[in-house]
Design a protein around this nucleic acid. Structure first.
Length: 590
RNA sequence: GCCCCCGUAGCUCAGGGGAUAGAGCAGUGGUUUCCUAAACCAUUGGUCGCAGGUUCAAUUCCUGCCGGGGGUACCA
């Protein structure tokens, strides 16, 4: 029994009586909603506005309708899994337990981790630009959001059949490197004995401190970057060294998080494409001079001008993003390109996307060849710390590695306390610690600002990643105890407890949830779904009989146990797959 | 000034026209002759920022205001 089938059944029932009912089956299918209170049945049809059009009162119409519905069910074969009830203005429909169970559990048993997958994206490339940390700075907690959201979207779109292309648009170019080069030449000696990234970061912070006292440093930094961009040897060598050191350090983080990129094309990658890009925009008549800078005026669109080149000729990040879009289009012919970047940059992306659109207008690009409708900024809120914005310039930053280390250590202590015989202690501790950190980041809507809170990240109880991992481990444990394969055919009517029916309803929703998370580009849709599923199953697991004793999943009743194990396995599959879509591993034991 | 986001329980957040507004944490009281208590049950706690409007129905949609955050041409 599925919602579609319920909708069809509703429709068929109504078509039987076209004179009695003013409804058309399609309209009914669209109106059907899920009651918040499960006692009200599986589906509800609100009649208020329909009653109004028919000039009747909802309760009377409902009574008439319900009687006719139930009469039809008695007459016709094949609908006896449905029953209708009138409650005020709501026409409620109930679906029998066995019908849902059979459909959902056999689908999961067959598809396993492919449950909820589709091929709707077959043959379509989707570029996902995410993570994109800045070279020569530590990987801060602020970069976790882009990394975690982007990685999750990568997996979600892959599940729907798309070919995702993950690009780490490293911040490896720009005026900041002028600053770093100047700082290194001035004070590099002081940093010799430090760990390289920490040393570079200290230089960066020191530069900003000194710059306030000595504004001429800003000028020197601009000159140094210009020299770098012009290919000057000394600057280029320093830059390359900074970049290599940073990449090594970032790779350790990505390995720990289980994040993979298809390309590490940072901003510098587009350096040799700048001139052609600016020339193309100029040929399209979009570029003007303004106070010495090269600019695309966007006043007509209520946006600040998009700066392509500074007065000294050096390029800006907008130029590099525009060049990047053109390059990616030529290379990947993407269906869509997603930029997983903080909300603070929304004006920047509006500008850049608008410039692309104007370019296409000017070049009279054919509709199917147009890039601009495919571009989307996936924005998210800031991570703040103690109500302050984190600023790498000021040195007010929390390092992701420290957070992962603390979470892993805590997980290790907990395992030693709760399950000291666990074989893979360190590996499991790592999985749980990292899972807690990622889940904490992906469990709220992405566009709200989040206050970084050590306690929230280091909690493994309640609505957390470890809660789901723990539930998964217990499911695996049940399967181990069962010690036999689950029979191919089981009698689903044994799954008749309200707690079990609820789990079935939640399992049924998973494919829709995956699709919704893709449509909205919101991993938290999956996070909250998994919490609902975990809680629903834990109620089954610890359900008590009337005598006050736990109603065990595994009992002497082999038929009932078989049906329950089919449910257990289905929940296990969906939690595991759901966590995978968030970028989190589910251990079999913990 | 202009643009964007947020305001729901003590705290962190769901819900985004419909039936008594939900979770987790924190508080209180329970559950283990062990299918992993990282769990489960019960219970305390809310003029859904304020004021209008649209509607049979508004926490949800519209407008205004208040409060918080962010962006706004040579940083990214």
């Amino acid at each position: 029994m599925t919602a579609e089938a319920a909708e069809t059944a509703f429709g068929e029932l109504y078509e039987e009586q076209p004179d009695l009912f003013i409804f058309d089956p399609v309209a009914i299918a669209e109106r059907l909603e899920k009651p918040k209170n499960p006692d009200m049945g599986n589906y509800a049809l609100p009649l208020f506005d329909l009653a109004k059009t028919a000039h009747g009162n909802p309760a009377d119409l409902n009574k008439q309708l319900t009687d006719a519905q139930n009469a039809l069910i008695n007459q016709k074969d094949g609908f006896d899994y449905l029953s209708f009830e009138a409650v005020g203005g709501f026409n409620n429909c109930r679906v029998s337990a066995g019908a849902t169970a059979k459909l959902v559990l056999s689908a999961i048993a067959t598809d396993e981790d492919e449950y909820g997958s589709s091929d709707e994206g077959r043959g379509k490339n989707i570029v996902i630009d995410f993570s994109s940390p800045n070279i020569a700075k530590p990987f801060g907690i602020g970069h976790l959001r882009s990394t975690a959201i982007g990685n999750s979207l990568y997996r979600i779109f892959q599940k729907l059949g798309y070919r995702p292309i993950g690009i780490n648009h490293l911040g490896d170019w720009g005026t900041q490197f002028g600053k770093l080069i100047v700082a290194y030449n001035l004070w590099g000696i002081e940093m010799q004995n430090k760990e390289p990234i920490a040393g570079l970061y200290d230089l960066y912070v020191k530069f900003h401190r000194e710059e306030e006292k000595d504004p001429s440093l800003s000028e020197k930094a601009r000159e140094a970057f210009k020299a770098l961009e012009d290919g000057n040897q000394d600057e280029a060598e320093l830059w390359k060294e900074f970049r290599d050191l940073s990449l090594q350090s970032f790779q350790q983080i990505y390995d720990r998080l289980g994040v993979h990129f298809d390309y590490n094309h940072g901003e510098s990658f587009y350096n040799d494409k700048m001139d052609a890009t600016v020339a193309r925009l100029e040929a399209a008549g979009l570029v003007t001079d303004s106070q010495g800078a090269r600019v695309v005026n966007l006043e007509a669109y209520n946006l600040p001008p998009c700066l392509l080149a500074k007065a000294d000729g050096a390029t800006l990040y907008a130029t590099r993003d525009i060049a990047g879009i053109l390059y990616r289009w030529e290379t990947f012919r993407f269906e869509r390109a997603l930029y997983v970047v903080g909300a603070a940059q929304q004006d920047h992306f509006k500008q850049v996307f608008k410039v692309i659109e104007l370019l296409e207008d000017a070049e009279q690009t054919l509709p199917e060849e147009r890039i601009s409708p495919r571009l989307q900024h996936i924005e998210f809120g800031w991570i703040r710390f103690k109500d302050q914005a984190m600023s790498t310039r000021k040195g007010n930053i929390i390092i992701l590695e420290d957070v992962l280390n603390k979470a892993t250590t805590l997980a290790r202590e907990l395992i030693l306390e709760k399950n000291p015989d666990l074989a893979e202690l360190d590996k499991t501790a790592q999985i749980i610690g990292v899972g807690a950190v990622i889940f904490a980041d992906l469990s709220t809507r992405k566009h709200i600002d989040v206050n970084f809170d050590w306690d929230a990240v280091l909690t493994f109880e309640g609505e957390t990643g470890p809660y789901l991992q723990y539930t998964h481990a217990r499911l695996c444990s049940l399967l181990r105890h069962y010690q036999q394969p689950i029979p191919e055919t089981v009698d689903y009517r044994y799954l008749d407890q309200p707690e079990e029916k609820n789990v079935l309803d939640v399992l049924y929703r998973f494919p829709f949830v995956v699709r919704e998370s893709a449509e909205t580009c919101e991993p938290y849709v999956i996070s909250t779904y998994l919490l609902t599923l975990g809680a629903a199953f834990n109620k089954v697991y610890q359900r008590k009989n009337d005598d006050g004793k736990i109603d065990r999943i595994i009992s002497d009743d082999t038929e009932q146990t078989a049906a329950r194990m089919a449910l257990v396995n289905a929940v296990r599959v969906v939690i595991r797959e759901g966590l995978y879509l968030l970028g989190i591993t589910a251990p079999d034991e913990m």
